[in-house]
Design a protein around this nucleic acid. Structure first.
Length: 581
RNA sequence: CGGGGUGUGGCGCAGUUGGUAGCGCGCCUGGUUUGGGACCAGGAGGUCCGCAGUUCGAGUCUGCGCACCCCGACCA
């Protein structure tokens, strides 16, 4: 491709609405343009990156035994109103990002935010027997979610390109096998795309299901926090991460004692006022869930993790999908004084869930359920009841790894891919069944596996750029080589550059030829901004020195390569580059 | 949905006490340049986000909208 003919302009100045590195560079370099909040056009350069990524994804999905399909963007709303097997809210109720519309007959439709429902209906239609299984189908398509707040440039958009794969199996072993196969494929994909990432144990969130892994690209621009062990490599979402509670010395139990603590409504205030460490206090947080009042209590140096709490409550048999901080009204009805909440003297109508951290240490300070008063020397089981002991506290930077005792570190990242075992969550309510070898009707076991293609492109930019511009990994660069022609109107330079361009193309090298009449500075700066991994300069000077100047975008030094060897050397560099991604 | 900010040529911005719009970059013509965003000369390009007011007169003042961005809530 010749730059002179490409539908692209680079911008010298940072666009005003710039939302961070990926957006700024992708817009300035002419890869994408924003149409409206969270909605982007992909210009020819951006499209080539998307195609590169998609090709890698297709190759790995096909290798894993999957088949590609296209599913509808427009879907009838009623498939979103199907109640799940556990009687919880339908997805239309649980999800507030649906784009709703009506067709001309007034029928309610949605723009598909994902395709579990549609694909389950397909499986219902085509899978009859265990002999038809397993099935792995995938799509690479635009999905739409009316996000409350798009942000981060291409990291979180309302219209986005996503690869989703859905697996259907006859039994747990099959589902596990599919899950492992796709997990492996994901590692291959992200490696080929030249990304730095970690794989973490994740919470499956509102989508439901059992095992779940997230592939997190490490970048400060991300929205997700994970913890990683510096010793054993254990990595998990902070909402799921297990850690060892620090040990506190056991003191002889002392008698309860009420103390006046004016205005000490927070743990920090309280600890400072009494001159004790936060770990010597009890933090009690009140929630409502399933129509019950829940007291969640953790040691004062920790925080309640609502995701863990939700899951723990479910294990305790309390419907928790509506978990919320207790309202003032609910507190009043339960006779609880906010800010001075006490675990003492609670009736059976209040469910008390305690974090295991409270098993270490004693003589805690807790609220007195009376404004401006706390109680000292609170001890279990002498002074309060616990209905369930669970892990309900958030992991933190520096916590001890539950796996090996090493130290957990918080890392910031962005979710590249997420894989789930869904089990029968969709197959049961949609009646997607098959006949097993004994002739019994069984629900299909499903898994789902997503990759944000556009987000992957944005993350690549976040992970690989400098002050001059993007530095594309070889695997997903729009072109592998920038051929910069200078002095094209001098002597036979123009002809030589033209010939080299033709030869490179004939050799199958993806080359972007800067054939414009521009000053050297403009061309070099644009080449750096676009970020093609290899740059070849053909100029009066380079010819005098014996050929072309060849340089990696990631490095400073160039070297002279004789014209006659140029194609071969460039080919070799690209092979090397692809290997190293 | 709360809090804050911004809307003026393609892009980035300025615009005084209200007097009919300007700068830089980019673009087009011609010439001079030619290794890290060159120079000279000429030129094209504007419903000043929209609507309604105030005024002899509104980019500027008032009201109501709309859009975009940031912080938070949310995030399959």
């Amino acid at each position: 491709m010749r730059i002179s003919q490409q539908l692209t302009t680079t911008l010298r100045e940072v666009p005003r609405e710039s939302e961070g590195v990926n957006q700024e560079l992708l817009v300035r370099a002419g890869f994408v343009r924003q149409l409206t909040s969270g909605v982007y056009s992909f210009l020819p350069l951006g499209n080539r990156v998307i195609q590169k990524i998609s090709t890698i994804v297709r190759e790995e999905m096909n290798r894993a035994g999957s088949q590609e399909v296209i599913m509808p963007v427009i879907q009838p709303r009623d498939i979103w109103e199907v109640k799940p097997a556990d009687g919880g809210p339908s997805r239309a109720e649980g999800v507030d990002v649906l784009f709703n519309l009506k067709d001309r007959k007034g029928r309610n439709m949605v723009l598909g935010p994902t395709h579990e429902e549609v694909v389950t209906l397909l499986a219902k239609e085509f899978v009859r027997s265990y002999r038809d299984l397993p099935q792995l189908v995938y799509q690479i398509q635009v999905k739409l979610r009316d996000e409350p707040r798009p942000r981060g440039g291409l990291l979180r958009t309302r219209e986005f390109l996503m690869k989703d794969l859905y697996s259907f199996d006859a039994n747990e072993e099959g589902m596990d096998k599919s899950y492992r196969a796709i997990s492996q494929a994901y590692n291959a994909i992200f490696n080929r795309c030249g990304l730095r990432f970690i794989v973490i144990q994740a919470d499956s969130g509102a989508i439901g299901g059992k095992d779940s892994q997230e592939f997190i690209a490490i970048t400060d621009a991300g929205e997700d926090d994970a913890v990683e062990c510096d010793t054993c490599g254990y990595a998990a979402n902070t909402e799921k991460a297990e850690f060892v509670r620090s040990e506190l010395a056991q003191e002889p139990e002392a008698a309860l004692e009420e103390v006046h603590t004016p205005n000490a409504t927070s743990i920090e205030d309280l600890a400072a006022f009494l001159n004790i460490s936060a770990a010597k206090t009890m933090k009690v947080v009140c929630y409502g869930a399933g129509g019950k009042m829940i007291l969640a209590t953790v040691r004062g140096d920790l925080d309640v993790n609502e995701v863990k709490l939700t899951n723990a409550l479910r294990r305790a048999g309390i419907p928790s999908s509506d978990l919320h901080l207790a309202t003032a009204e609910e507190l009043q009805r339960a006779g609880i004084v906010a800010g001075f909440t006490s675990p003492l003297d609670k009736g059976k109508d209040i469910f008390i869930m305690a974090d295991t951290s409270l098993k270490s240490g004693n003589n805690f300070v807790a609220g007195a359920n009376r404004v401006d008063y706390h109680v000292k020397n609170v001890n279990y089981p002498r002074d309060f009841r616990v209905d369930a002991w669970e892990d309900i506290a958030s992991a933190y930077d520096g916590a001890r790894c539950a796996n090996c005792g090493g130290t957990l570190h918080v890392v910031r990242g962005s979710e590249l891919g997420h894989i789930f075992k869904l089990g029968t969550r969709y197959s049961i309510p949609f009646g997607a069944t098959f006949l097993d070898a004994q002739g019994n009707e069984q629900p299909l076991l499903m898994g789902c596996y997503g990759i944000g293609i556009g987000r992957l492109m944005a993350i690549a930019v976040e992970q690989s750029h400098d002050e001059k511009g993007i530095i594309w990994p070889f695997g997903i660069a729009p072109y592998q080589l920038a051929l910069v022609g200078l002095d094209l109107d001098k002597g036979d330079n123009g002809q030589l550059a033209e010939q080299l361009y033709q030869d490179l193309q004939a050799a199958g090298i993806e080359v972007l030829f800067d054939d414009r009449i521009e000053s050297a500075g403009v061309k070099f700066n644009d080449a750096d901004l676009l970020g093609l991994p290899l740059r070849a300069v053909l100029s009066k000077r380079s010819l005098k020195n014996g050929g072309i100047e060849l340089k990696l975008r990631s490095q400073k030094e160039s070297r002279i390569v004789p014209l006659a060897e140029a194609v071969q050397v460039i080919q070799h560099e690209i092979q090397q580059g692809l290997k190293q991604d």
